[in-house]
Design a protein around this nucleic acid. Structure first.
Lengths: 344, 344
DNA sequence: CGCAGCTTTGGAAGCGCTTGCAACTGTGAG
DNA sequence: CTCACAGTTGCAAGCGCTTCCAAAGCTGCG
């Protein structure tokens, strides 16, 4: 395995010059640069990351902390982060902390702190102040996606705003009996997102003078299967059925649609369903949704960091509201004619 | 940020002793060990990975190369690998090479070769001999999951065997008009998996004396939406319809089920569907499938590597066939009574 | 009481790079 | 023709650990 020394010998240059030539930093004559490059290529030399990290303090490695890898949002963010990082020549160290607080704790302490990553991207993870301080203390930029992260830069969509708009869309179609499927308490703890979206929903309802019926506020774990199970309860047991469901994620909206089909309810004729995400499956189900480009959010987070590394960016924590797009397909329509009213 | 020197001073020991005490290697008196630990804890000391890697040659980091992060199989493997690695105190460097050969090439060359990872886990990736040689040349163990990897250890399920068993299950139920949804050519190139499963299917058909009709051999990209689109063509256009579909993955099987529903076909009364995977969504759709524990495969791959690191394992490439379980739910049943035959 | 043989300890030499510094080269202006 | 200066280059000092080695401290047995 060739070292820089071998390259230097072969190129007839000093180690220092080779280092500068290959890294592009410092002044090197075109001639030397060319020689160094050729020699390196011929030997198949690749600089040892540990050595160069140790010497330079830069790792070319960013840590990505996600609460799960199975939810659409998270895997999409990972994809965006990964692609952008790879393009820039950075490694991605993935920390999947799905298994609870304990793992999360050990990740933060034993892994991130080991001076191993240049920066941290935390997705939908609410850290305690102490945890953030720890992270900030090691002098590494942090950017948070999809969750509040006091003291760090964040990228978020306007959760309450689009939730409100989603609900308003249903209301404007004429719905008044609207259910909301929100996220589980387990998620609330970390992400606070369920609450935010729910708040937007409630605001829209209140503004329209509509009642938020507690029995129509259901929750699930953000998965299709979880939402499916609970939507069956919602649609099967209520003496009166909602005419529309606003789900806090596309996966949950799909679960609702599947449950509706089980009961012979047609979407959108009998039941309107709206989600949030822009999941690839939305097309199959004709799902009306707010498209939040999760990949793009991941990519943006990385670009932000790269700017910082280049020294261009300012150190101040910046908060970006990532734009979303309303995608109307055919899972939402005017409510069915009220049977009771017809009869009366 | 405290260094080992600070710990040594505080503990009243030499740097060498502290290093031994904290790493657990070499003889250190219980007293010194205790002192070193306390001092390290008080200072919040964590050894720099780059420094210790440089000095020891061990990185405590394994590279995981996946072709995508969105397919069920891959994200499940990532999950299993991640959890097991984290438990063992290792970092996971993720290389998502979804964007084609070029990216793959650069990952192999510029990233993995940088002496940064202690081992490589390649999922469903077929590497050229040259690429494998390169990997083996840097003296790092490689284990492949779900794909052939000549020269490296592999973990695979019996693809052709379970495909054969799946087809046989349909045949034994009485089906003779069986379609097969296989993977795209794009996947074939790297994974060879579509072909292997297809071979199993064909063998079962041949053994039963049944014809493999080319127009019922369809393919998709392993996604629900891709399979859905092509299943619509299959079920909609054929003059004669198959009574059963064997899909090479659960996600594709689900796509088939959704397409069937669009045509008013009941599963399993009108159409039997069987998949392979053990996808979480299988339950929602009552999908009969072969459960391959993808998480478990990831975990096993890591355990294999850890054994090697501990020096216990032998260097020889080992091939493990990972067990699968047949899960019968209610997407498969006897074929519908043949209308033509009734009339005749 | 002495010594072999063990455990425990610290000194110091790296691991393979980056980079500050000083020396050296070549250029154009004076 | 000389001098100042910018562009190049190499030397050598680290980066923060691990680990070899030799020295020191113990133990127990003859």
């Amino acid at each position: 395995m060739p070292g820089i020394k071998d390259v230097a010998e072969r190129a007839g240059l000093s180690i220092a010059t080779v280092s500068r030539a290959l890294s592009g930093k410092g002044n090197v004559s075109p001639r030397s640069r060319e020689r160094a490059r050729t020699a390196a290529a011929e030997l198949g030399f690749v600089a040892s990351y540990q050595a160069s990290s140790l010497a330079s303090g830069r790792n070319h490695n960013v840590g990505l902390v996600v609460p799960s890898i199975h939810r659409w949002f998270f895997s999409s963010v990972v994809e965006g982060v990964s692609a952008t990082l790879l393009d820039a020549g950075y490694d991605l160290t993935l920390y999947n902390v799905s298994e609870g607080r304990e793992r999360r704790h050990s990740v933060l302490n034993d892994f991130l702190l080991r001076k191993r990553v240049d920066a941290v991207i935390a997705v939908s993870l609410e850290l305690s102040e102490a945890e953030i301080d720890q992270l900030l203390a090691i002098h590494r930029p942090i950017v948070g996606i999809g969750g509040p992260l006091p003291g760090a830069s964040t990228i978020r969509i306007d959760d309450s705003g689009i939730a409100e708009a989603a609900a308003r869309h249903l209301i404007q179609l004429g719905h008044s009996k609207i259910a909301h499927m929100t996220g589980d308490a387990a998620y609330e703890q970390d992400f606070r997102l369920p609450g935010t979206r729910q708040a937007g929903f409630k605001k829209a309802m209140r503004d329209a003078g509509l009642a938020v019926r507690p029995e129509w506020q259901v929750s699930a774990d953000f998965t299709i299967q979880g939402a499916y199970a609970n939507a069956r309860k919602l649609l099967g047991s209520s003496p009166e059925r909602p005419t529309a469901v606003f789900a806090a994620s596309d996966e949950m909206a799909i679960g609702v649609i599947l449950a509706a089909r089980d009961f012979g309810l047609r979407v959108p004729q009998d039941l309107s369903v709206i989600g949030i995400d822009g999941h690839e499956l939305g097309e199959v189900f004709g799902l009306t949704t707010f498209d939040q480009d999760a990949r793009g959010q991941g990519a943006l987070a990385v670009r932000r960091l790269l700017e910082r590394f280049d020294g261009a960016g300012d150190t101040a924590a910046a908060h970006t509201e990532y734009p979303t797009h309303f995608v109307i397909r055919n899972s939402t329509a005017v409510p069915p004619v009220d049977q009771g009213r017809l009869r009366g």
